[in-house]
Simulated scan of single mutants.
Amino acid sequence: MRLLVRKKIFAANHDSNGGETLYGLTRSSRWLLRDSEPSLAPMVLMENHPWLVAPWHCFSHCVKEGGIAFKMAHGQEIWDFALQNPELNKLFNDGMACTSRIISRAIVSGYKDGFSSIGSLVDVGGGIGEMMSEIMKSYPHIKGINFDLPHVISTAPKYNGISHVHGDMFQAVPQADAVIMKLPSINTRDRRKIPARLDTPSRPQADAVIMKILKNCKKAIPKKTGKVIIVEVVLQPDSNELFDETGLALDLAILAHTTGKERTEPEWKKILEEGGFPRYNIIDIPAFPSIIEAFHE
């Protein structure tokens, strides 16, 4: 408990009469309460489940031999494993949903002008629809489409004004005025079995995956007025701002569980240009990711 108090996870209250030390919550530990609003408990439970911890112990083997850490730990990639294991599917969906609720509020408050002119919006890899639901609360005029894999959509609750559509983002994306993707480095997967080596600095396979999705998004939106809204970390390795360390830690978690990666702005610029989006804006919001607004031309 002393370490947790030092890290400000808990507060210590010492009895003035020399009695027992009592411990209380801080702003940090309140995020861990299941019944708190907002709560990060589902994400913490997901990341600390033995299934998600095991791949971290495979990093040294991946460096020496190549391969995907999660697959090395469990014999298959996380998306196939979740398809066959409803418990992991629920853990992952609940974990992503709780972060969606938090990030979505930051998106709505930080991107007000961006949503006002959109008539229809598709959330690619939208999970069970939490982010789209939050957006629709503030912008009910938008026709919302929540798009994800069939086994994910099958567990999604009903929301007013939102259509749940299942499919494969590597094949096609539903037509809309705009596309939004939250944390695509985490959510995306390609069925091509390409090994991702830890000792490949740029992890080019991950770039190819994102570019493939971007090209399908480009086909789904109007050429002149359409846009892709990417809610993702833009790494600042040498910065000491509030969320910079979070982005680097998330990059490691992605490496443990998928073939993805987080990126710096120059890396994003390269991917966007090669994916067909030569013009973009980066918009800071009050959360660890930023909004990358990308346009056809």
Rank of each mutant, 00 (worst) to 15 (best):
I107L: 15
W51M: 06
S202Q: 13
A249G: 08
I135F: 01
N89P: 00
A156M: 03
D113S: 15
L4N: 01
P38A: 04
G75N: 07
H14M: 12
P237L: 02
T188V: 11
I285C: 04
A97M: 07
L45V: 13
Y139P: 08
D113A: 15
E267D: 14
Q84Y: 07
I180T: 09
E293L: 12
H166C: 15
A287S: 09
F115E: 06
Q84K: 11
P201E: 07
T155V: 10
C98P: 02
G24T: 10
N281I: 13
G226M: 05
T21I: 13
L248P: 00
I210V: 14
H49F: 03
E20K: 12
I210R: 08
K193A: 15
R2P: 00
F92V: 14
F243W: 15
P286A: 12
A82L: 09
N13T: 15
T258A: 13
L252D: 12
R197T: 03
R105I: 03
S104F: 00
I103M: 11
V108Q: 07
V63L: 13
V108I: 10
N160S: 12
D168C: 11
L198I: 09
K270D: 10
D251L: 05
P289W: 00
A208D: 14
I271V: 02
I229M: 09
G18F: 04
E47M: 13
A73R: 03
T155R: 11
S109W: 04
H151Y: 13
H61F: 08
G75K: 02
T200L: 04
E274Y: 00
A220W: 04
G126R: 00
T21N: 08
S163P: 03
A11C: 06
D94P: 02
I282Y: 00
D94S: 08
Q205C: 05
F295H: 06
K182T: 06
I283W: 01
A287D: 00
P278I: 01
G276V: 03
E20W: 08
T264D: 02
C58A: 14
P42L: 04
T188Q: 12
I9W: 12
E130Y: 05
N216H: 07
M132Y: 01
N89K: 08
R2G: 04
S202K: 09
A287Y: 05
R203N: 14
N93D: 14
P42K: 07
I162S: 02
I254L: 11
S138N: 10
D168F: 11
S39Y: 10
W31Y: 13
W79C: 11
E20D: 10
G144A: 10
M181E: 00
E274D: 08
F295L: 01
I118N: 06
P201V: 05
T99D: 06
R203F: 09
E87F: 05
I283P: 00
A12R: 06
Q205I: 06
L52F: 15
